[in-house]
Amino acid sequence: MSSVTTHPSLSLVSTSHAPAAVGPYTQAVRVGDLLFCSGSLGLDPSTGKLVEGGVEAQARQALKNMKAVIEAGGSEVGKVVKTTVFLQSMDDFKPVNAIYADFFGEHKPARSAVQVARLPLDALFEIEAIVSDFRGNSRSQDES
């Protein structure tokens, strides 16, 4: 058994408002002003099962789960810097893109979207995020 322990500079984040991790990882890790969110699937937090209704329902639930983790980590969706979207089929890009756009509204984080051979639990959609929670001086370089 490994003797590795979490370094004190890292804070592990978890919430019961999102599904428990399906493996040996945590829902998110905070380091400094950054929150790294593990992949969120379209699991119902109360049952641990994938929601019914196809990729659209799974995408909506995964985004809701990701939001719960972000908020548990002390940040907000408007501070998401980068997401990675994993799709079981790139044929689902258009409907998922519409759900994604509706979820983020005017906020447009950097994003990658890839088709993968298989997702955990045979999910159709997964999303991970990096979130900033920088609270320092907000002056622009021009004001320096």
Rank of each mutant, 00 (worst) to 15 (best):
S75Y: 02
P24G: 05
T84S: 14
A57Q: 02
G74Y: 05
V31A: 15
F103R: 04
G74Q: 06
D142L: 15
S140C: 07
A129Q: 05
S2G: 08
Q58Y: 04
G54M: 10
G39R: 09
K49I: 10
F134N: 08
L124I: 02
S89K: 13
S112V: 09
R30Q: 14
R111L: 12
D33I: 04
V29K: 11
A59G: 01
S144N: 06
D91K: 13
S138Q: 10
A28H: 13
Y100S: 04
V114K: 14
A129T: 04
F134W: 11
F36E: 04
G74N: 02
N97K: 14
E76F: 08
K94H: 06
K49W: 11
L43E: 01
A101I: 11
T47K: 12
A20F: 03
T47I: 11
T15L: 12
V85D: 01
L63I: 00
E126H: 04
D142G: 07
V55K: 09
E126A: 15
A57G: 03
E76N: 12
S140V: 03
P8A: 11
S9L: 12
F36N: 10
V4Q: 12
A123C: 02
P120E: 10
N65L: 07
E143I: 12
Q141F: 15
G78C: 12
A57F: 05
F134A: 06
S2A: 14
T26E: 14
A20Y: 01
L34S: 13
P95N: 13
R135L: 10
I127M: 05
A123H: 00
R135V: 02
A101K: 15
Y100R: 11
S144K: 12
A123P: 00
E106M: 11
S14T: 11
L12N: 10
K94T: 13
S138E: 10
H7Y: 11
S89C: 06
S138I: 01
T15R: 13
V29N: 05
M1Q: 09
L12T: 12
E126F: 00
G73L: 05
Q88C: 03
R139F: 10
F36R: 07
A20V: 04
F134V: 06
D133W: 07
S46R: 13
G42A: 10
V29L: 14
I70R: 01
I127R: 02
H7F: 09
G42K: 02
G53Q: 06
N137K: 06
A129Y: 04
I130Y: 00
V13L: 08
L12P: 00
G136Y: 05
